[in-house]
């Protein structure tokens, strides 16, 4: 299954990527699993695992680590928000 993954702000800079489309193994069915899969590539990608207070969204709604991820979803990882 394929999903779109987006990175924002300090995380986008740390990873050197605004986002990508990735192929998920069948075993990766949650946000936490997607995070671990990407961080597991090593190098700068480990910063996805290291970032404190990481926030995430699935299909543009804030989501917790145990949120389900399905084929065609848009997942985003980002630091805590600082608008206003």
């Amino acid at each position: 299954m394929k999903i779109k993954v987006l990175y924002f702000a300090a995380l986008r800079e740390a990873l050197g990527s605004p986002g990508e489309t990735i192929e998920l193994p069948e075993s990766a069915t949650t946000l936490a699993a997607v995070r671990a899969l990407i961080a597991g590539r090593g190098g700068d990608w480990d910063k996805l695992a290291q970032m404190k207070n990481l926030r995430a969204a699935v299909n543009q709604r804030m989501a917790e680590p145990d949120a389900a991820v399905a084929d065609g979803d848009e997942v985003a990882f980002f630091p805590p928000v600082t608008g206003g």
Binding site: F8, A9, A10, N53, A57, M62, A76, F78, P79, P80, V81, T82, G83, G84
Partner: peptide, 26 residues
């Protein structure tokens, strides 16, 4: 609305200071 915007709406600020550019911490 302002209190929720500050914690729920995805915006991120980066400041340019004499010490360089930095992302604002929540």
């Amino acid at each position: 609305i302002m209190d929720y915007l500050k914690t729920q709406a995805p915006f991120w600020k980066r400041e340019d200071t004499p010490e360089g550019s930095r992302w604002v911490d929540a």
